[in-house]
Computed example of a mutant assay.
Amino acid sequence: MVAVRRAIAPLLLAGALLLTGCEEDAPAAPAPAPVTTRTVTPTPTTVTPSPSPSLPPSSAAAPPVASGKVVVLDPGHNGGNGAHPAEINRQVPAGRGQTKPCNTTGTATNAGYPEHAFTWDVAQRIGKALADKGIRVVYTRQNDTGVGPCVDKRAAVGNDANADAVVSIHADGSTAAGANGFHVAYSSPPLNAAQGAPSTRLAQVVRDTMRSDGFSTSNYIGGNGLSARTDLGGLNLSTRPAVLVECGNMRNAAEAARMTSAEGRQQYASAIAAAIEAYLAS
């Protein structure tokens, strides 16, 4: 949103001046600060001005459209998962009568930069951008050194927070030749009302915004940047509008370079934050 500010100076007589963005991995195959209106008062002259027309009072800046909303951010995986195989391999409910491992270790670039570090960093950047707009941000994990939480617990965080949107951040690890691009997954067919039109619309807004910001849609998973899924526990168990964003393929050299750089992670975060804002405002 762009705040429009106008400075209106009174008219004086002659001599006066006018101043002027893999909960489970896929199958292998910030915003401008509020503007403060500043009224510049001309320096008085010896000329006696005629009465000025009545001016409307300056109104205070309206609160952001999304102020008061709640967003849950779910950074995929966790830094301690690899050291606790028994815990993360424990079977938990995954919706649709399925069970799945509690969590996974995630993937990494060929140079070893881990998915859990990428998702944590991007989620923190998204969260800051949203919080600056008055949006309450809740995270499914509080650091990048712990274990889990399990996918069912991650879903419960969004449900318990009565989130207006739940966005899970991931990156893929496909070794297929030439595999690249992002896609947005959502639970389908829907198991409740929130998984229907609200989640589908959230997925479309994230897809459209990321594409507008120069990110290419996946050429190997889903279609046109969207992927309807039945097997992602965090989405199946959600009773709030929820999507999972696979930001790209960490095994692709170009995308790995982008994910590894702070500038690239900020680009992902800015696009996803803008998409969430747009969804909340619509």
Rank of each mutant, 00 (worst) to 15 (best):
D231A: 14
P51N: 14
T140K: 09
D213K: 01
S67F: 13
A62M: 14
R154I: 13
A185M: 01
R240S: 13
R201M: 12
H116M: 03
I126Q: 02
V166K: 10
S227T: 11
P189S: 06
A9T: 15
P189G: 01
R154L: 13
C247V: 13
A203I: 04
D152G: 12
N180E: 10
Q204P: 00
L55W: 04
H84P: 02
S199L: 15
E255L: 08
L232V: 10
G127W: 02
A228D: 07
L11A: 15
C150E: 01
T175F: 08
T107A: 14
V65D: 01
S216N: 14
L13D: 13
G95S: 11
V65E: 05
L19I: 15
L73I: 01
S174F: 02
A156Y: 13
N159K: 05
S218L: 03
V245E: 03
A16D: 12
F118A: 10
A269V: 03
S261A: 05
L73D: 00
Q204C: 07
C102Q: 04
A108V: 07
A111T: 13
P57N: 09
Y268I: 00
C22I: 06
L18M: 10
L11D: 14
P57T: 11
I126T: 07
V157P: 02
L17E: 10
R141W: 02
A176E: 08
S187Q: 08
N110F: 06
S282F: 01
H84M: 05
A262Q: 05
R154K: 14
A3K: 11
V47L: 05
I169K: 04
S52P: 08
S218Q: 06
V71K: 10
A253H: 09
N78P: 04
S227M: 13
V184A: 06
A197T: 01
S282A: 08
A129P: 01
R5F: 11
D160Y: 05
H84R: 02
A179H: 06
C247N: 14
V243I: 05
M210D: 03
G173R: 11
R251E: 11
D160L: 09
L19V: 15
V70W: 01
T107L: 14
N180S: 06
D160R: 12
P63Q: 08
T41I: 12
L17S: 12
D160V: 09
S261N: 14
L130P: 13
M250H: 00
V71D: 00
F215H: 07
A281Q: 05
D160F: 09
P34C: 10
I126E: 03
D164L: 01
A156T: 15
A7E: 15
G68T: 04
L13M: 11
A111N: 08
P53Q: 11
D231I: 11
A203F: 08
I8P: 09
P30L: 07
P114F: 09
G264I: 00
A108Q: 14
A269F: 06
R5S: 12
V65G: 05
R229P: 07
